[in-house]
């Protein structure tokens, strides 16, 4: 069997083949694809400015809406009214010792408070019975004298 050691012995013939009519049909196939691409590109180029414009309008409208919301906020809906802030500051400032003690004692009233309440009751009784301060002193002095005499 003869051996081929030189490339030139083999020749340049194509050892491959193609399906029948391949080169006849190919130009038409490629042209169809090119037309499709062209149409897609045309549609995109046509609607691109409209989409850009719409996006710009939506952006502007959104910014305007947010700006109006901030500027035109109704007072009742504002969670940070000046009065609320002032009240909060007042409470912070006057959170006094008694309130602190009350909190520590779990809300039980102190002796001083009980005395104060009793005094208020006495004054109210005297007012209701129309007993003035002088009458009361005189009566108390008379009672005191009677007591001494009895002793």
């Amino acid at each position: 069997m003869q051996k081929h050691h030189k490339i030139s012995d083999i020749g340049k013939e194509q050892p491959f083949k193609v399906p029948g009519n391949y080169f006849k049909d190919l130009p038409e196939q490629i042209m169809e694809q090119c037309q499709e691409k062209e149409q897609k590109r045309s549609v995109v180029e046509l609607i691109k400015p409209a989409i850009s414009l719409a996006a710009m309008f939506i952006g502007v409208a959104l910014i305007a809406y947010l700006a109006i919301q901030v500027i035109d906020q109704p007072e009742g809906k504002n969670p940070y009214r000046q009065e609320d802030i002032a009240e909060a500051e007042y409470h912070d400032q006057y959170y006094n010792q008694n309130e602190l003690m009350e909190d520590i004692n779990g809300g039980e009233s102190t002796q001083a408070e009980q005395d104060s309440e009793q005094t208020d009751q006495y004054i109210e009784y005297l007012l209701n019975e129309d007993i003035d301060y002088t009458t009361l002193i005189n009566e108390l002095e008379e009672d005191s004298r009677k007591g001494k005499n009895n002793q």
């Binding site: 081929h4 490339i7 083999i10 013939e13 050892p15 491959f16 083949k17 193609v18 399906p19």
Partner: peptide, 15 residues
């Protein structure tokens, strides 16, 4: 295994 290869043995060897 290419069904569209039509060369002879020596052409296959060259490829």
């Amino acid at each position: 295994s290419d069904e569209y290869f039509s060369g002879n043995q020596i052409q296959l060897k060259l490829q």
